[in-house]
């Protein structure tokens, strides 16, 4: 039990990091990583949504789709995620205005974050995470923590890139992507060979 939880966390958050080794969620990774504070905000918002969306999609899959309408999985999951993001946004606005102030602008962006739909779909196929709804939700949480780690590390790297004078064709996105590639190389190299 404890070992399974640890294995899910280590494999999803670090070894098979969603950004660096599965290349999911690259749009917000490139878009929001220009400052560490916004990167942290985005990471927290993604963690919040992913933990909840993995629980809800799993619940709906078990109750409604399993064995009967499995081909509707993609349609149902993306609708759940879109409405969940909307719901979380409204609830935060009403109940926790201070948290809404910090995360508010990132929430609408999350619907199109492919890591959220990816985590919901992956959790169904994962050997450990598919055991029950709690594991499934924890899988989403771990994936989001991995995303947050990646975006925070890269925000630091990017602050350094911005200080350099870059050859003209490489300015903007290209140098950001190459920087991300080298960061990914370091990150994956550090954890290479660990298998769960």
């Amino acid at each position: 039990m404890i070992l399974d939880i640890l294995a899910i966390f280590l494999s999803v958050a670090l070894v098979d990091n969603y950004v660096f080794s599965q290349t999911l969620g690259i749009c917000p990774f490139l878009g929001v990583s220009s400052k560490p504070s916004t990167a942290l905000g985005m990471g927290l918002a993604v963690t919040f949504v992913m933990t909840m969306s993995n629980a809800v999609t799993r619940l709906v899959f078990d109750l409604l789709l399993k064995g009967r309408f499995e081909y509707l999985q993609t349609v149902v999951f993306i609708l759940i995620i879109a409405s969940l993001v909307q719901l979380i946004e409204m609830m935060l606005k009403k109940l926790l205005p201070s948290l809404y102030g910090a995360l508010g602008i990132y929430l609408p962006l999350i619907t199109t974050n492919c890591a959220v739909l990816g985590a919901a779909t992956n959790a169904l196929g994962d050997q450990r995470a598919s055991a029950n709804i709690l594991f499934s939700s924890f899988y989403g949480f771990s994936a989001a923590i991995g995303f947050t780690i990646a975006i925070l590390i890269f925000a630091g790297v990017r602050a350094r890139i911005d200080e350099e004078s870059v050859p003209e064709p490489f300015r903007g996105t290209p140098i950001t992507l190459i920087g991300a590639g080298i960061t990914a190389l370091v990150f994956n190299g550090l954890l290479a060979g660990i298998k769960f």
């Binding site: 660096f20 080794s21 599965q22 290349t23 490489f170 996105t173 290209p174 140098i175 950001t176 992507l177 190459i178 991300a180 590639g181 080298i182 990914a184 190389l185 994956n188």
Partner: peptide, 11 residues
């Protein structure tokens, strides 16, 4: 590998 993908796309 994934890091190579980032670098080639950047180029």
């Amino acid at each position: 590998s994934p890091p190579g993908a980032f670098i080639v796309l950047g180029c």
